[in-house]
Design a binder for these strands. Structure first.
Length: 304
DNA sequence: CACTTGACCTGTCCGC
DNA sequence: TGCGGACAGGTCAAGT
């Protein structure tokens, strides 16, 4: 489930390796994963080169020299895996460099493409970029770079939570758009703020000692300030650790992810809260699996 | 308009 | 061992 820190990690990895690469061919086995017309691909992708890779919310953009871009949403199971060019006569040293959310079977990394590979981009130097997506929710689109900000999704997006301009006052204003819903639903709403998903919603609410079912309008200014600080701290820490996924995560060097080292509540039901020792439980809030410490995060009901 | 729920998919896990 | 069903969650469309 790539959220802001995971997508940021993928972006940084791709930004290291992709600029300057020139597209040679594209193979797509699932039309919905990459719905572009082949005439556009021929005209604006093939033979163009990568200028830079950027991120907004959970969306990646690979900008091309043709003034088009590949816009990519990984949704839940999407991965972008860069495999460097094979070195002829020295295949043992041609270890692929791999970026993205965890692959279900790390030992198969060198066997890409596999059955979850939806799109493969091949560059003229023999390197590849694989878009893997087990559940086919993610997508890649080729479009003029200038049109990206006009996509409905981008137009409605809330602010980036790690930018300097995202003060707790701004956070409070954004939350006011959803004042009659639960704080968990508001955090997951990408028009309130961009990039938070289920993991970081739960983690930040634990940090601020707020029950996820709390109605937004009943939350004090002090608590909103605390949630703002908690959210930024959780996101920053995760980026510093190279992002995280729930399981099987390995980074570019095959190292396991460090998520379990810092998750306080997410998928921790049954274990002890690190603050108070009470057992973490799992609930359903806003239609999502939700993890809390029932002692630290008590529900304050708002009178209607 | 504000808000909630179901659909989109596939793989995994649990109980029988 | 197999089989059915619940579950995983980001976003959008359709519902209340």
């Amino acid at each position: 489930m790539p959220e802001l820190p995971e997508v940021e990690t993928v972006k940084r990895g791709l930004q290291t390796f992709l600029p300057g690469k020139i597209f040679a061919t594209v193979v797509c086995d699932n039309l919905k994963s990459f719905p572009n017309a082949s005439s556009d691909v021929d005209a604006f992708l093939i033979s163009s080169s990568v200028v830079k890779v950027t991120r907004r919310a959970k969306v990646l953009t690979i900008q091309l020299s043709s003034n088009y871009s590949l816009v990519i949403h990984l949704k839940m199971t999407g991965q972008l895996v860069f495999v460097g060019p094979a070195i002829i006569g020295d295949e043992k040293n041609s270890t692929p460099l791999r970026f993205g959310a965890g692959h279900p079977n790390a030992s198969l990394i060198q066997a890409l493409p596999d059955r979850s590979t939806r799109v493969t981009f091949k560059f003229i130097d023999g390197s590849h970029l694989h878009f893997n997506d087990q559940r086919k929710f993610g997508w890649v689109r080729l479009m003029p770079t200038s049109e990206i900000p006009h996509m409905d999704f981008f137009k409605k997006l809330g602010p980036e939570p790690l930018e300097d301009s995202f003060t707790w006052h701004v956070f409070a204003e954004r939350l006011a758009r959803r004042k009659n819903t639960t704080i968990k639903a508001a955090l997951l709403d990408q028009t309130v703020l961009a990039g938070v998903g289920n993991i970081y919603a739960d983690e930040s609410l634990w940090g601020a000692r707020i029950h996820p079912s709390t109605i937004v309008r009943g939350i004090s200014k002090a608590k909103i300030k605390s949630l703002h600080a908690s959210l930024q701290s959780v996101l920053r820490r995760s980026i510093a650790l190279g992002g995280s996924t729930d399981r099987n995560y390995v980074d570019a060097t095959g190292k396991k992810g460090s998520y379990l080292l810092f998750a306080e509540v997410f998928r921790k039901e049954g274990s002890a809260c690190s603050r108070c020792g009470h057992q973490i439980i799992k609930l359903r809030v806003a239609g999502r699996g939700t993890h809390i410490c029932p002692f630290c995060q008590r529900l304050v009901r708002t009178l209607s």
